[in-house]
Design a protein around this nucleic acid. Structure first.
Length: 745
DNA sequence: ACCTCAAACATTTTT
DNA sequence: TGTTTGAGGT
């Protein structure tokens, strides 16, 4: 009963709730993970079998953490049958078990976002469509959006509004692309991330026995980060929980920040409609942050209308006030941050790992990096391209994927001419077209290349050689483990030679990455003796960088976007770039719901801090080669002044003048002068000038994202000329003409 | 098949 | 501004 003693009364109630639907509203820093793990321990203590428990999380890391904590209290053999993992990994597991029911092989492989984009690209090319109208990224996103709302290419026909939108955007062939995309995935025995959810839902809808089987199996369902579930996830959960209704969802509506990828706060707000007899527990005590930080966060979030009422409080110390600083440029901001880190390290026993710098967009990291390097402060940037998405890694993994599933077309396309073996783009294109015509897989065409008259002798021989190479690896993979087969692949294909001989800095880093992959593989192979290659391929497809995180070992300052920081905590947090058009983001300004999401994002940022919080904004930001005039974010004015302090920076070199939040007029005059000086430079650029002048009130325009619209009015002149446009599909938006890239119709 | 250079593009991200 | 993409040359 040790685990119960560590809980407060509300946590205890939530943990001890055994039967029936329940929702835990867990404020930031309220011990959410502890409640989840304690609840699982409590279930096990009450003789509920491990194989009857399903626990869903959003990241592998969260799942791993929970499992570790549970294994501290229980012997492994009592917990090993808990189904604990991400939505995607759990559903992939179900789909592999039930593959025969949905006409898929068990060994299907998974397309990541890049593979999907390449597939869309090749479909568009194959259909001879204009890639200016059918932008691969846009099409992929739309397909993903539809799948996440349970709209298949078949049911798309029933959604007239969606078709209308495509018609307006002149994407009349969208439905056909979608359909081809679906059938190509099917024919290559591959699924994209969205399929893992969509196919699971279809499986549960179409196979009553299977549904009963899993409804019965999962007597207790726990879901973490419920506010981030999207529609299809909601549908699946609802189906699975429908029989026992022992569903426990944990989340915080105030931390819902993923609506741009389909998460809907509705799922948490409407929980009561699906489970009228539910119980709510509110975890309102914050164990993480000082009083100042908690109350400042409360003062921000209360500006949101759509939320569940709660009162987050803490017994922690008052703490230091939040320091808000205004600077002139992003460069100064970076210096301010790095100097402050240095300063705190001198005054206290803080280490690099106790600091985090959070920003709205990845692009902001550059100047911060520079300043940290200058000050010799070790840092680590999160985000950007993850390990498994690096070209050199994906190329090797593509060989692995082919060995697991020869129909995996995107994998085959990656390796057929890598390393270069004289099978050029033309030959590959011919192979693909032929495969499409014959409605067969690329690999089948390669296997039967002898009977096909499309190629000359040389090309044919090279293709046959490639085929023999793959067949050799296939043979070898029967006797070698994952580590050994990958070793064989990189030696035999020449990838090893190729990468070790590249002595450029990038080449060396690529070689190191390959080494790291091999190290990981060796460890994996030792732990998974059976079928290790296919298991490795399956697992790796759903793994991300954040899962192998090693911040604490490396003792460096953390740089990341606010999104990436969710769930983490640091003693000292810097939130930089608190400016209108940046945080809140420009694209969110016209829409109240989007602004509320940005506010939640700011709330998440604030609540990462345990002891000290620093917020800064600049009046000029260098962006895309130009200085942009900025004003303080509205969010700064929303923090109750009781908890903040507008402070003069210590470094005289940085701050010759007193720079305070509210010195709006005097400060800005100075800045406007510098801005004006730069103006002629922009105006002398003919292209820029013409582009801006041609837009008049009443002009019909087209925007890349918002589609067609009409300019209602114009504001300001010169570089900052803005247009208020009424879009047919997206309503009224205010856009900076310089960035909007509007097309005159 | 490889290189070079200019144009285009760039806004949050997990699986 | 930096990076990526693709066109055009060899």
């Amino acid at each position: 009963m040790d685990y119960l003693n560590k809980l407060n009364s509300e946590q205890k109630k939530a943990v001890q709730h055994l039967e029936g639907p329940m929702m835990v509203i867990a404020g930031a820093g309220s011990g959410k993970t502890r409640v989840l793990t304690s609840r699982i321990i409590h279930l096990l203590n009450n003789n509920i079998h491990d194989h009857n428990i399903l626990s869903l999380t959003f990241t592998n890391k969260a799942a791993k953490e929970m499992r570790e904590r549970i294994n501290n209290s229980f012997a492994r053999d009592k917990t090993k049958n808990i189904w604990m993992g991400t939505f995607h990994s759990i559903f992939a597991r179900i789909l592999r078990l039930e593959a025969h029911q949905i006409n898929y092989p068990t060994n299907f492989t998974i397309y990541d976002t890049e593979d999907c984009k390449n597939l869309v690209k090749s479909i568009i090319k194959d259909k001879n469509l204009d890639k200016e109208i059918y932008k691969p990224n846009l099409i992929r996103n739309r397909i993903s959006f539809l799948k996440n709302n349970f709209i298949t290419s078949e049911s798309y026909k029933e959604h007239l509004d969606l078709q209308e939108a495509d018609k307006i955007a002149k994407r009349t062939q969208f439905a056909s692309i979608y359909k081809t995309y679906e059938s190509k995935c099917k024919n290559s025995s591959t699924m994209d991330f969205d399929d893992l959810l969509l196919r699971t839902y279809e499986l549960l809808c179409n196979n009553k026995d299977t549904l009963f089987k899993y409804q019965n199996k999962f007597k207790y369902i726990l879901i973490d980060e419920y506010q981030d579930t999207n529609h299809i996830q909601y549908l699946i959960i609802k189906k699975l929980a429908d029989f026992h209704k022992n569903i426990c969802v944990v989340g915080d509506d105030a931390q819902s920040i993923y609506s741009f990828r389909g998460a809907t706060i509705k799922n948490i707000l409407n929980f009561k409609l699906d489970y009228p007899k539910f119980t709510t527990y509110k975890l309102e005590q914050n164990y993480r942050s000082s009083k100042n930080i908690v109350q400042a966060a409360n003062s921000i979030i209360k500006h949101n209308e759509r939320q569940i009422q709660k009162n987050i409080w803490t017994e922690n110390n008052e703490g230091e006030k939040i320091i808000i600083t205004k600077v002139n440029t992003d460069k100064e901001e970076s210096l301010l941050v790095s100097n402050t880190i240095k300063h705190i390290k001198q005054l206290t026993d803080a280490h690099n790992k106790d600091f985090a710098i959070l920003y709205r967009t990845n692009a902001q990291s550059r100047s911060l990096e520079e300043a940290l390097r200058k000050n010799n402060i070790a840092y680590k940037i999160y985000g950007g391209i993850s390990f498994y998405q690096r070209k050199e890694i994906k190329d090797i993994l593509a060989y692995c994927r082919i060995l697991v599933n020869q129909k995996d077309e995107e994998a085959l396309k990656r390796i057929i001419n890598y390393p270069a073996r004289g099978i050029g783009i033309n030959s590959i294109q011919k192979l693909i077209s032929y495969a499409n015509e014959q409605n067969t897989s690329l690999w089948d065409v390669i296997c039967n290349i002898d009977g096909i008259k499309l190629f000359n002798k040389g090309t044919k021989n090279r293709i046959i050689k490639f085929k023999q190479l793959i067949i050799y690896f296939l043979e070898q993979s029967k006797i070698l483990n994952a580590f050994e087969i990958v070793n064989e692949i990189i030696k035999k294909t020449g990838i090893y030679e190729l990468s070790i001989s590249d002595k450029t800095p990038e080449g060396i880093s690529r070689f190191e990455n390959i080494q790291e992959l091999l190290n990981g593989l060796q460890e994996f192979s030792e732990n998974n003796l059976l079928n290790s290659l296919s298991e490795f391929v399956n697992e790796v497809a759903l793994i991300t960088d954040q899962d192998n995180d090693n911040t604490n070992i490396r003792n460096s300052v953390t740089l990341m976007t606010v999104h990436a920081a969710k769930g983490l905590e640091f003693h000292n947090v810097f939130i930089v770039g608190l400016e209108e058009n940046l945080f809140p983001s420009m694209l969110s300004l016209q829409n109240k719901q989007d602004i509320e999401e940005e506010r939640r994002l700011f709330y998440v940022a604030i609540t990462r801090a345990e002891k000290r919080l620093f917020i800064s904004f600049t009046s000029n930001r260098f962006k895309w080669g130009q200085f942009i005039n900025c004003e303080a974010s509205r969010f700064i004015y929303e923090i109750d002044e009781k908890y903040t302090e507008k402070k003069e920076a210590k470094n005289k070199e940085l701050f010759q003048k007193n720079i305070y939040l509210k010195t709006k007029n005097s400060e800005n005059k100075q800045i406007n002068k510098t801005k004006l000086k730069r103006l002629p430079k922009f105006l002398s650029s003919k292209k820029e000038n013409n582009n801006l002048i041609k837009f008049k009130v009443g002009s019909k325009v087209k925007h890349i994202k918002f589609g067609e619209g009409e300019i209602i009015s114009l504001e300001e002149d010169g570089v900052n000329k803005k247009a208020i446009i009424s879009f047919k599909m997206f309503g009224i938006k205010k856009l900076l003409l310089r960035f909007a890239k509007l097309q005159l119709l």
